[in-house]
Design a protein around this nucleic acid. Structure first.
Length: 265
DNA sequence: CTCAGTGTTCAGTG
DNA sequence: TCACTGAACACTGA
């Protein structure tokens, strides 16, 4: 379930377990898709024996920084994840890459559907694909003026614009729906029809939703009960939000969109 | 067996 | 060229 908050949560867990430690051994699956054609032995050669110094994230990508280069960049797709564990008995299925650290801790990347990607980059933030991304809402939002100008020149549905990673990196399907629900905006509206105050609401709520989700470690049980998040899954017939209003499911921007017509105009 | 899916990319269209 | 749309990708689980 990896949008910005989930990726940030995964990054923090791995950072805590790995920061300052040397990689003792590296295991990598042969997988032309996840590794984009880079052979396993190149990852082994690049990472074995190197010390992890920290980590960072932009949008839905996060990376481990080492002394020297290159660094190791993860993207989760829809089903990827990084795991921290102590020994082989806990090794996850569909494992693609595993770092065994000097103290025996293991960092594993798994992805059953192989839609995620693992890359080596010298400067992740400066090189594709991360260099192509827009702002990261947790690192800081652009001024309201930038939102107004961007929306004004866009004819796509507002939901599609929020999902566009070259605008707001890290926003995925549930966050886009949650923001538009809380802002009271119909997800099908063309972005260029939003008023200044609607645009301001989108900006403020985007910051709030992501900030809170990260603050609670993406533990959805701790998301406020007023959020659409709790009621939107499964396309259930007769689904309602926390106040009993009907939830409608519509394809917008190529994605299943949950929204509440009574609230979103 | 069929189909949806918390994501991204790319061909096709206007 | 650009903005936008929709299908494709790969695979599991419901």
């Amino acid at each position: 379930m990896p949008e910005l908050p989930e990726v940030e949560t995964a990054r923090r867990a791995v950072d805590r377990a790995a920061r300052g430690k040397v990689v003792r051994t590296v295991w990598v699956a042969e997988d032309r898709i996840v590794f984009e054609g880079v052979p396993a032995d190149r990852f082994v050669a690049a990472l074995t024996g190197r010390r992890i110094t920290g980590s960072d994230r932009w949008g839905k990508h996060y990376w481990l920084a080492f002394e020297g280069r290159p660094w190791l960049v993860f993207h989760f797709g829809m089903t990827g994840w990084t795991h921290v564990y102590a020994d082989d008995s806990e090794r996850p299925k569909f494992l693609k890459l595993e770092l065994e650290l000097e103290d025996g801790t293991r960092i594993g990347y798994r992805d059953p559907r192989r839609i995620g990607r693992v890359r080596l980059r010298d400067n992740p933030r400066e090189e594709p694909p991360i260099s192509e991304l827009g702002f990261d809402p947790l690192h800081g939002l652009p001024p309201g003026k930038v939102f107004r100008e961007e929306f004004a020149r866009r004819k796509a549905p507002i939901k599609a614009v929020l999902l566009d990673q070259s605008f707001s990196a890290g926003v995925g399907n549930w966050i886009a729906d949650e923001v538009l629900y809380q802002a009271g905006i119909d997800p099908r509206r063309r972005a260029d029809t939003l008023t200044a105050s609607e645009t301001a609401r989108v900006r403020a709520i985007l910051k709030k939703v992501i900030g809170l989700a990260v603050k609670v470690g993406s533990d959805d049980a701790r998301f406020p009960r007023t959020w659409l998040f709790h009621y939107r899954w499964g396309k259930t017939r007769g689904a309602v939000d926390g106040r009993g209003r009907a939830i409608r499911f519509t394809a917008v921007g190529g994605r299943t969109t949950a929204w509440v017509p009574d609230v979103q105009r």
